[in-house]
């Protein structure tokens, strides 16, 4: 789905205009139905209600950096066995997309696109060294199985719609990467940086006043 395309919800016929240059999925703002154009490469998304949690971000929140403002347009929530990860799709610069990963007040930002991992997937273990380049080696932090996946809003380039894949996060100082491993498929990863919430300067967030 391309920026400017208008898609009608197959369930309630609500019209949705694509805001991202490349969009994988739109969740109907009226009825929650997934609007998705199959490319043949990925699984058909299974509809799953977005669980209620304590994240203070929402679709419509902004991240105001000195030179650029990012608008959160979509959310992909991964339910892992012992954790959760919210991947927030942030739109900037007329339809470009970056990902902000969030979990229990920790944030990472991913400006680069998905890449295929050329290394040995057996490297992707907790405590093991993952060679990303001659200069950069990451250390595996955890391996978690994704048991549930839910979407909201508009999702940029994304290939993982069915739970059951494994997520590995590996980091070194502020450098961090998320690896997504599906059986019998290539390993995809996102590379970015860990960042403090204060630096992301979120606006229009959920207040949760009882914690203030």
């Amino acid at each position: 789905m391309k920026r400017g395309d208008v898609h009608s919800c197959p369930s309630c016929n609500t019209l949705h205009t694509v805001t991202l240059i490349e969009s994988s999925l739109i969740v109907c703002k009226s009825c929650g139905t997934y609007i998705h154009e199959a490319t043949g490469d990925e699984n058909t998304p299974e509809q799953s209600k977005m669980p209620d949690d304590w994240t203070f971000l929402k679709i419509g929140s902004t991240c105001e950096l000195p030179q650029q403002t990012f608008h959160l347009v979509g959310r992909c929530r991964l339910q892992l066995r012992n954790d959760y990860k919210n991947f927030w799709c942030a739109e900037y610069g007329r339809g470009k997309c970056l990902w902000i990963a969030e979990s229990f007040g920790s944030f990472s930002i991913f400006l680069s696109a998905w890449e295929k991992f050329a290394g040995d997937p057996a490297q992707l273990r907790a405590g093991a060294s993952v060679k990303m380049s001659n200069e950069l080696k990451l250390i595996g932090e955890y391996v978690e199985k994704c048991e549930g996946i839910s979407f909201a809003g508009e999702i940029g380039a994304w290939n993982f719609f069915t739970p059951g894949f494994f997520v590995v996060q590996a980091s070194a100082t502020t450098k961090t990467s998320f690896f997504f491993l599906e059986p019998k498929k290539n390993v995809s990863f996102l590379s970015g940086e860990k960042i403090l919430a204060e630096r992301l300067n979120f606006k229009n967030t959920i207040e949760w006043n009882e914690w203030k």
């Binding site: 979990s103 229990f104 007040g105 920790s106 250390i139 980091s171 100082t173 949760w208």
Partner: peptide
């Protein structure tokens, strides 16, 4: 737990307390 900070632990042994929290900076 705090939604903005995440979770932490208050650990108590023999009446001595420590606040312990997960860190990204290894």
């Amino acid at each position: 737990f705090n939604p903005f900070e995440g979770y932490a632990f208050l650990s108590e042994y023999n009446g001595h307390w420590n606040m312990v929290w997960p860190v990204d900076d290894v």
